[in-house]
Amino acid sequence: MTSVVDIHTHFVPRGWPTLGAGPDWPRLRVDSEAHATIMVGSTEFRRIGSECWDAVRRLQDMGEDDVDSQVVSPTPLFFSYDRDAREALRVSRIFNELALEICAPAGERLLPFCQVPLQDPELAMAELDRCMAAGHRGVEIGNHVGDRDLDDAGVERFLIHCAEIGAPVFVHPWDMPGSPRLDRWMARWLAGMPAETHLSLIAMVLGGVFDRVPASLRICFAHGGGSYAFWSGRFENAWQRRRDLVGVSERPPSEYVGRFSVDSVVFDPAALRLLVDVLGHENVMLGSDYPYPLGERPAGRVVRESGFLGAAEQAAVLGGNAERFLRLPALQGAL
């Protein structure tokens, strides 16, 4: 029987050492045994609960949601891509070790993904190798490093390494630009995040990354791939009609469908149907963004309530596709 696997969840450890001096370093204000607040200087970034660090609490919520396993990824605030690479490596190692501690009590039910100092591909590859040997199951990366997108030569070298060692990659938007228009109503999360992911998928195609990296690369984009599926027709039309500017990839954008996956955390059956229609059900995996307030609870509700997925398709989205993506032991003989 296919398991239910949530490919998109995050953790924050309850205690971490002082990361550095200065007002822009994140720290945790512990408010009670079950609650804390992530602070950046004197500004509240996010209030969190014990589900961020407590495996028992996570497992209880997973039981309520009928989820068998979670991929547990870093919270992007801690990527530290804007810092010195050695400093970012130190931060990565702190959180990677804490991720293993959080997931250890749950065995195969909580599957840790590491973070790496992506601004330095050599350090990033070395840290990924160390983490995969230590028990991490893949890596989460941000969708850009400053002005360098996923077609940057260094990032591409890292992705090739991921393909070579068989490490799955989860791409999460982060560091959305702010402005007076975007700093209201959580607009950076509501509009900026989908746009960031869409832009990075365009970079993967038009930057030629999918033409150069091995087809064995397993890469998944958060939040349903942002606005990519909705605007795929516009992308295709531009590639055909403005070949002088857009037609720089070896093939039209539609022919790269199948080279990447997206999660299902789109909150609406019509949006999920669009993902399935455009990308194929075999390229969509259950995601919830647990435990954050903009996530889906119960996890998988939209997938389970969709009336257009057949039983086999629903089972694939809920877990079968993730089992292949993660190469879980149950499927090793079939891979």
Rank of each mutant, 00 (worst) to 15 (best):
D66C: 10
D66V: 10
D68Y: 05
D68C: 03
Q70D: 02
Q70S: 05
V71E: 11
V71N: 06
V72K: 06
V72W: 08
P74A: 09
P74Q: 05
T75G: 00
T75F: 12
T75K: 02
P76G: 00
P76W: 07
L77Y: 00
L77M: 04
F79M: 11
S80V: 01
Y81D: 09
Y81E: 03
D82Y: 14
R83H: 03
R83P: 00
D84Q: 12
A85H: 01
R86F: 06
E87Y: 01
L89G: 04
R90M: 09
R90G: 14
V91E: 11
V91Y: 04
S92M: 05
S92E: 03
R93S: 03
R93I: 05
I94H: 11
F95H: 09
N96I: 12
N96S: 08
E97F: 15
E97I: 14
E97Q: 15
L100W: 13
L100V: 07
E101H: 10
C103N: 12
C103H: 12
C103Y: 14
C103S: 15
A104H: 12
P105R: 05
A106L: 15
E108K: 13
R109V: 10
L110Q: 13
P112R: 12
P112N: 11
F113Q: 02
Q115C: 14
P117N: 04
P117W: 08
L118R: 01
Q119N: 05
D120N: 12
P121R: 11
P121N: 06
P121I: 09
E122M: 09
L123G: 01
L123K: 02
L123A: 00
A124V: 06
A124R: 08
A124C: 08
A124S: 02
M125V: 08
M125R: 14
M125G: 04
A126H: 07
E127T: 03
L128V: 02
L128P: 06
